[in-house]
Computed example of a mutant assay.
Amino acid sequence: MDVMDDIARRGLLLLGCGKMGSAMLAGWLARGVDPGMVSVIDPAPSDWLRGTRVRLGAPEAPPAVAVIAVKPQMMDDALPALDAGDTLFVSVAAGVPVARFEAALGAGARVVRAMPNTPAAIGRGITAIVANAAAGADGLDAAEALLSAVGEVVRLEDEDQIDAVTAVSGSGPAYAFHLIEAMTDAGVAEGLPEPLSRRLATATVAGAGALAMEAGEDAAALRRNVTSPGGTTQAALEVLMDPARGFPHLVPEAVAAAARRSRELRG
């Protein structure tokens, strides 16, 4: 049965409605999910959430899907309140492995672990998913159908890849935001007013990302296209591409640090 048909029949539970939960809920409602079939458990419902006409509180019967979007430190309180049954559990909680859900819900619990990122708030996120054996391919199909409401979805071969995904795409938006900060400061240092420099930096990073998504060429080819021999871009890239102190050194070091911390957090 299609997941949306199953939700229309048995309902959908969202546990936690912060920024990511709200983004997902907005995407589902925009796709035509009946708010009357959605239950949301959140300790402090926002005015926006109250206005969606979803059910606030636990559902009366086990839902088709339960999406877990609470903070990892709240998981110990949240999981015991859930009844596994034949519900599909989709978790977007960072650092919480599938095994922890199986321990709390039972070895037969159907679990999909997902790692989204913050551009999901505007429907431009990318989410990586992986399922346990009990969820299988059907669980992955259902999770992809739900999570595609906030952007692209990719499937992992193994849960261990989640740490690398966290380091590249989960934490990645912060790297892009910091690049905007650094470019803004550099423009100011070269004599631009701060608001103008910030606007130029923000639009440039956003536009370059959109071009990379749509151009049909890889990033290296796009970089070469904009780099004239002996020109201004080449002068800048000689600094940024320095293997000892530029991006080839800094970015792998930063991603490795994030992946290492991800592994530490899951124990």
Rank of each mutant, 00 (worst) to 15 (best):
A131F: 03
V96T: 11
T127M: 14
G108Q: 13
D83S: 11
A99H: 00
M75E: 06
V96L: 06
A133W: 00
L140H: 02
L147S: 08
R113N: 03
I129Q: 08
F89N: 00
P80V: 11
L147C: 09
D77M: 12
A131H: 04
I129T: 14
R124T: 08
Q73K: 07
D86R: 09
T127Q: 11
N117E: 12
L79N: 07
A109H: 03
E102Y: 00
G125F: 11
N132P: 06
G85Q: 04
S91N: 01
V70I: 13
R100G: 04
G125V: 13
A107H: 01
A104F: 06
G85D: 03
F101V: 11
A99D: 10
A135N: 04
A143G: 10
V67K: 00
T118Y: 09
P119Y: 11
P72C: 11
L88Q: 02
A120R: 00
K71Y: 09
V90D: 01
A133F: 02
F101L: 14
G95M: 09
A99V: 09
T87G: 03
P72E: 09
G95Y: 03
E102A: 14
G108E: 15
L88S: 06
G123I: 13
M74R: 06
A121Q: 15
A103Q: 14
P80G: 13
R113G: 01
L82K: 05
A131C: 10
A78V: 12
T127F: 13
A93Q: 02
P72T: 03
N132H: 07
M74F: 13
R124C: 14
A104G: 01
P72D: 09
V96I: 15
D86G: 02
A109W: 04
R113V: 10
D83N: 04
A128W: 05
M115P: 02
I68H: 05
T127G: 12
A120M: 13
A142M: 07
V67C: 10
G106P: 01
G95I: 09
G125D: 10
M74W: 13
A66M: 08
V90P: 01
F101E: 07
E144N: 06
A121L: 15
G106Q: 06
T118E: 12
Q73H: 14
G108T: 11
V70A: 12
D83T: 15
S148T: 15
L146I: 15
M75S: 07
S91V: 07
V96C: 05
L105N: 04
M115E: 06
I129Y: 04
A137W: 00
T118Q: 14
V96A: 01
R110Y: 11
V70L: 11
A133G: 12
A78Y: 09
A114V: 15
A81P: 00
G95T: 02
S148N: 04
S148V: 08
D76P: 03
A128V: 12
V130N: 00
P116C: 08
P97E: 02
V96K: 05
Q73N: 12
D141W: 01
P97C: 05
F101W: 15
G139Y: 03
A135T: 09
F89V: 06
F101I: 11
Q73T: 13
E144I: 07
R100E: 09
R100M: 10
T127C: 12
E144K: 05
R124Y: 10
T127H: 12
L79S: 07
A104V: 08
L88V: 03
